[in-house]
Nucleic acid binder design. Structure first.
Ligand SMILES: [Mn+2]
Ligand SMILES: [Mn+2]
Ligand SMILES: [Mn+2]
Ligand SMILES: [Mn+2]
Lengths: 160, 160
DNA sequence: GAAATAATATAGCCAATGCTATTTTTCAAT
DNA sequence: ATTGAAAAATAGCATTGGCTATATTATTTC
């Protein structure tokens, strides 16, 4: 069955094109593989900028996980070249780490602000953005930004 | 350090409240644990409605994974009460399964339509929605729906 | 109805992400 | 300098979600 290719949607309940669907699922699985790295690097950058140091206990407390979980992930971050670790010293970001952190922080900010701008409460926006950010493509981020600019200028112009 | 509680954002680069942040991360981790179940159930419902049967090979092809991967997940779906499986027969949804599928399908549709409505291309909307849907809370979905209704009525009223 | 094909089941492997319990190291106080 | 507390490292375990290779079971076809 389903030998007849359907391009795009057909009717209401019909299946979308198989190749298109598999592409979506693959991309989503790919995004999932980097979610954690992104959140760690972003958080480490925040901690470094705020207090000057990013310790495992701080990271663990902020993420709500146990310290050995953080220790293990930090090894991965080190192996992937995002941080430098010296035993019993704090964590530092490499150039690559700082670069990724900046990207993630911007993206996160755009998503969260966007949600607020369409009427989502600050608390819910904070929660939802933490997950959604990792699946927002550059194109979607551009759309979010356009929207933010529009509503900002509308508000300045004094619209309802 | 960081014994002084900061409620909400402080300044530009400052850290948000630790309790708030941990709540976001926990919620996001929670959502992640159900993502796959949701996608499977939604896909099975689509296959059943379209061709009348949902076979492992079809599911595997649509998801872009191997058949044994699907077989394993179907055991989980069965254990969680979403499907009924008879060896070498197709998959069927239980009442709980149909209910979950309906919820997921609506949510997915809202997210995807919303992205399109703010100017994201159909292809990108399809891809991004596949991941973002699992992190959209009821409140955010309501905001998306409000926006969809607004832009629909604006278009009907003939705005630019 | 026997053979070929297709679908499913099963075994065994791996990587990622979490946990608890324990040991080791560093740091701070006395 | 010793000691006590805090932080980090390590060991060992569980679950989830992937894979390949292979064995079973149904279904088609001849
Ligand atoms: Mn983030
Ligand atoms: Mn995040
Ligand atoms: Mn979906
Ligand atoms: Mn999905």
């Amino acid at each position: 069955m389903s030998q007849h290719e359907n391009i795009g949607h057909d009717a209401e309940t019909g299946l979308i094109d198989a190749n298109a669907q598999v592409e979506s699922f693959r991309q989503t699985r790919n995004n999932r593989r980097t979610e954690l790295v992104e959140d760690y690097v972003e958080l480490i950058a925040d901690l470094l900028e705020d207090g000057g140091e990013a310790r495992q206990v701080d990271i663990a407390q902020r993420l709500g996980v146990a310290q050995p979980t953080v220790a293990k992930m930090l090894k991965r971050l080190g192996a992937e070249g995002y941080i430098q670790q010296r035993r019993y010293r704090g964590i530092f970001l490499t150039d690559a780490g700082r670069q990724l952190a900046e990207l993630c922080r911007e993206r996160h900010q755009i998503v969260e602000s966007f949600l607020c701008s369409i009427g989502v409460s600050a608390e819910t926006a904070r929660i939802d953005a933490e997950g959604m950010e990792h699946h927002a493509s550059p194109e979607t981020l551009e759309a979010f930004k356009r929207f933010l600019i529009q509503t900002t200028s509308s508000r300045i112009a004094g619209e309802a």
